[in-house]
Computed example of a mutant assay.
Amino acid sequence: MEQRILSSAPYKSFQSERVVVDLFRDHAWASTHGLYYEDLQTQKQRELDVVARQIWLSGDKAHEWVCRITVLVEVKTMAGFHLLLSPVESPDTRFFDHIRWFGDSTGKYKALSKRFRALGISLEDIDALIKRAHQHAYPEDRARLWEQMIRPQSLMAFTSFRETNFGSEKELDNSVFWRASRNLRSAQASIVESMGRSDMRELLITAEFDHIKDDWVDGMWFTLSRRLNAVDIIHPVVVTDAQLWIVGDEGPRQCNYARFGEQSYNGAIEWWCDLVNSEHLGDYVAAVSSHYAKRLLASGGKLSY
């Protein structure tokens, strides 16, 4: 039985996920094997293969911040398959949408105001809190945590691909890479939704505390400012043993990793993930780790874990 398990496809796939966990740990990430979340569209429980996390803190009490980086990884076995990638010129600024910050939207303030009013908080107190929050979030009309809102490292980008073993070509719905990217996008949406619920829950609990009623704005400020001083970066990755090929005017050439941009009709990148050949995962993890560390160290940060 042991030999049957060792030679089985599920065992080999499971072990390849464990290798990814260890590689991230080797580069100072807190990584875990397996994440369970609720798909927001189907309300069904789903599983993600690997999650790696780092938390960075500022070393300057005068300008406190927290940056949490979460790498979501799907590991897919595609022996004998190749992914043909069509490269596009794409500036790094297009890959900005995986950054979550509480101060980035008036929509959050409006939602808070509505919930506070339902608790009987005066409009005067609510307006004073929102004004204070905006002034804190955008000193001199620039986002307070702009330096911590780090775009991913530069990579060759592609918006179109083909998955083939040269005997056949997989349609989009049957593509292993496409399905893995859907899992990542679903997991990311679920995580962001969970973060939002957690923020709202803690703010509403604080708002109802009796001991802050005499000075409600100051009483709320500690809880709200903690959210304004924190930013979350989500970095999705598909790891596969399929060979990756850039297809250009000069013919195909092999590549180690690239960035998939899900492009809409107007040219905007609505979502992205990195695609990595498993043989080169070590180099990729080193590059990602170095990229974030360099930027956060330069802004006075220190790695918490």
Rank of each mutant, 00 (worst) to 15 (best):
H27D: 07
Q153S: 10
D141F: 02
I69V: 12
S175P: 01
S113W: 09
S168Y: 06
D39P: 01
V75T: 14
I269G: 10
F95R: 09
W29N: 11
E270T: 13
I69C: 05
T70R: 14
Q243Y: 10
G261L: 10
L184G: 09
E279R: 09
S168Q: 15
P10G: 11
S86F: 07
D218P: 00
E208L: 06
R100C: 04
H33A: 05
S31C: 07
G120F: 02
A28V: 06
L48P: 11
R144M: 04
R18M: 10
D125Y: 01
S278W: 01
Q41M: 08
D49P: 01
V21I: 15
W272Y: 15
A52F: 07
R142D: 13
S175Y: 05
R226Q: 06
R100H: 08
F260V: 04
D26Q: 14
N266R: 15
G120K: 06
W146L: 06
H134Y: 10
D92I: 02
D22I: 10
F209T: 02
W65S: 03
G282W: 05
V50P: 05
F260E: 03
K114T: 15
P139M: 08
L35N: 06
L172F: 04
Q54P: 06
S304R: 10
Q188G: 04
F24R: 11
M78H: 10
L303I: 03
L84V: 01
G103F: 00
